[in-house]
Design a protein around this nucleic acid. Structure first.
Lengths: 208, 208
DNA sequence: AATTCGTCACGAACGTGTTCGTGGTACCTT
DNA sequence: AAGGTACCACGAACACGTTCGTGACGAATT
């Protein structure tokens, strides 16, 4: 019974029954103990999820192409990062609210910082840009990672809300119209990454 | 007993006892009924929180200055939006995962779209930039909105993790060093907004 | 060698969100 | 006016996260 043992048991359950079944009680049952016993080694469910994310992130740094422009390699890395999170929306939610921790998360961060440095971005700007770059794929994973029926329902609800918006009260929403709903998660995500990179490159001056 | 009645009761409890006490059971007790009865009018706790956020957002569009450059007015609006969310981190978490809905959220979105249009941003770019602009203040509210002791603890933990990072394994993290931790939420937020706006202005070409 | 102390596993217990079967009431139909 | 139907309030029930008091085991000290 150790922290790693708990995480391992959680990973087994996740692979066999899905993340939804990875509960403290289910893990405790698998380890043949009571739920309270886990809290000696795991602070929180969030703590446990962070640990799971870190193991999921292990193959991500290797996904960056060895050659090519730094910008393309960075976008490939972030796309892969987003792909991992889209597979597990619950973990993506956690990643939004807690700083990444663990060796593999640190490796991802290190790779991003290295690519930004390769692009001539100063350390200070890269340090602040790091959060910004990780944020968007994560948020996209949370929004578009839900179950398809739930996602479609939310989309439809939003569509009717925009369509029935009073043009007198919400003129800009009415004018933008379907542009608000255009594009899928992937196209939006790559567009957003270009926006962020352009902005970061323009912000070469030290922020402080 | 209606949807508005439930939301009103929730708001009263929130003002008197804090958002933490706004539970389905507590609301049901206040309305002298059982917890299951609320689910006729409220789909979820998330749904309820979205409704609460919408009422909190009522005064936000009025916070934008009447005069001045559009960019300053937009930044003032987003800063006020972030201020509201930082007061209620739990609601900020919800705002990250569900599309804003309700009249006041729509009014905020409309105001942002209007200011972007004033800056010469095309409708298509503004539509996609809207999400991006709302995302960062929300994420900052989630990260920096926790209770001060918890926030300090996380910061300290991250600091030691960076300080003890193996320079051979994580060279870029080691080099960036304290730059990763520099700045407070406010300075980071305004910097990020400038980055986003620069990127959006550079992305004038239609994304599709 | 005996005793004390600290650490950790255990499970009961509390409050939580959400679902569901039951029953009553009000309205609409015939 | 009488019957049927559809809606909705209710609370019991389930699974969950988390906390806490209890007890036992092992090691260090006297």
């Amino acid at each position: 019974m150790s922290r790693q043992g708990i995480v391992d048991a959680a990973l087994v359950i996740m692979r066999e029954e899905g993340l939804g079944k990875v509960t403290m009680r289910r893990i405790a049952t698998a380890l043949d103990t009571g739920p309270g016993s886990l809290y000696v080694y795991v602070r929180d469910t969030e703590d446990l999820h962070a640990q799971i994310l870190d193991t999921l992130l292990a193959p991500v740094p290797a996904a960056v192409p060895a050659t090519g422009p730094w910008r393309d390699r960075l976008k490939a890395l972030l796309a892969d990062y987003g792909r991992v999170l889209q597979t597990h929306p619950t973990i993506a939610r956690m990643a939004l609210s807690t700083q990444p921790s663990g060796p593999n998360s640190l490796a991802v961060a290190d790779t991003i910082l290295g690519l930004l440095a390769e692009g001539g971005v100063s350390d200070q700007v890269a340090a602040w840009g790091l959060d910004l770059l990780l944020l968007y794929p994560t948020a996209i994973a949370v929004e578009h990672g839900g179950s398809p029926p739930q996602k479609a329902e939310g989309m439809a609800q939003l569509a009717t809300q925009i369509a029935t918006a009073d043009p007198a009260q919400y003129p800009n929403v009415a004018r933008a119209g379907t542009a608000l709903l255009s594009g899928n998660g992937s196209s939006r995500s790559t567009w957003a990454l270009d926006v962020l990179l352009d902005g970061i490159l323009a912000a070469q001056s030290p922020p402080v």
